[in-house]
């Protein structure tokens, strides 16, 4: 059996099936939904950081833009939710296109510029001068499309597609070439790889994923403010979850989300600052002692981790 098929059958399929069945046996629907959203976002970060090497501190910009893309479609054009979700994805891609010049920057420069870009989009959306379009800082209410069950299914579909995308990256020469670009762009060009094209494709793919997730999030919660959907916590959580598990793998970000977001929900909601403290220490410990994530515990022993 080719390894791509094996990964789809033994990683993606069981995860999606379990998440599809869980709402029937577990009461906290919102929590399950958030798990799915973070699984999507962590894989989105995996595509752009793990495979391409760009650390997207402003990843939430695409998510928030997607949420507002959804809201504007529903509020102003009375679009059906599914159409609005697709538009949300396209809004993410459009923002990604607008920000492609940032890919000229490397390392910290890219990370900070991306963070600044996401904050700029937040302040644009939340600007009272744009109230007629975005409702500014006053938030949107989309009761007409409110349907958590459908939104949950849509999230599972996007998760499945995202995982399929990562399985492709892990098993294709395309994914290998992306990693080559990450390691050394000059040597990659001298291997015949079109460095700019590869980076842009990965960037837009990860923007699409976050835009779709943002649209579905807007669909699910239906009432939100700019500060909710542009909260830096989305970027941070997605990055930390992906790093904790181990990037440039399929399973790493999944393991990261399940363990860390699980812990978060045990101790998180009543005292957020304690969780912040724990994940701050966790990040530091990770960088100092386990920079390649949990999966490196296995790879160090010579085990192959998909």
């Amino acid at each position: 059996m080719p390894s791509a098929l094996r990964h789809l059958l033994f990683i993606m399929a069981p995860l999606v099936v379990v998440l599809a069945v869980l709402p029937g046996v577990y009461q906290n629907h919102l929590l399950l939904f958030n798990f799915v959203i973070f699984l999507i976002l962590a894989q989105g970060v995996n595509i752009i950081y793990g495979f391409t090497g760009y650390l997207p501190f402003g990843y939430v910009g695409f998510f928030g833009a997607g949420a507002y893309g959804f809201a504007i479609m529903v509020m102003h054009l009375q679009a059906p939710a599914v159409v609005a979700v697709v538009v949300a994805g396209l809004v993410g891609v459009a923002l990604g296109l607008l920000l492609t010049p940032l890919l000229r920057l490397s390392g910290a420069y890219f990370a900070i510029a991306n963070l600044a870009a996401s904050l700029a989009v937040l302040h644009l959306v939340a600007n009272p001068a744009l109230e007629s379009i975005t409702k500014g800082p006053y938030g949107v209410s989309l009761t007409g499309t409110f349907n958590p069950n459908s939104a949950y299914i849509a999230a599972l579909v996007v998760l499945a597609l995202t995982l399929a995308g990562v399985v492709y990256l892990k098993n294709s020469s395309f994914g290998l070439a992306l990693q080559a670009v990450r390691e050394d762009s000059v040597s990659a060009a001298m291997s015949g790889v079109s460095v700019v094209k590869m980076r842009v494709i990965a960037w837009l793919a990860s923007a699409l994923v976050a835009g779709l997730a943002g649209g579905i999030y807007a669909w699910y919660v239906s009432v939100f403010y700019p500060d909710n959907v542009f909260s830096g916590d989305f970027s941070i959580f997605a990055i930390v979850f992906a790093l904790f598990g181990g990037v440039a793998t399929i399973t790493g970000p999944i393991v990261g989300v399940i363990i860390l977001y699980g812990i978060y929900n045990v101790i998180g909601f009543t005292t957020p600052q304690y969780f912040q403290l724990i994940y701050g220490l966790l990040i530091m410990g990770l960088v100092l002692f386990l920079p390649a994530g949990l999966v490196s515990l296995a790879t160090r022993r010579g085990w192959h981790v998909p």
Partner: peptide
Amino acid sequence: PEMLSIILFFGLSQVIEAITTI
């Protein structure tokens, strides 16, 4: 080191903020 330092100091920033909040 460059990429890891960004993440490391980001973690430190979270720790400081959390402790101050507590």
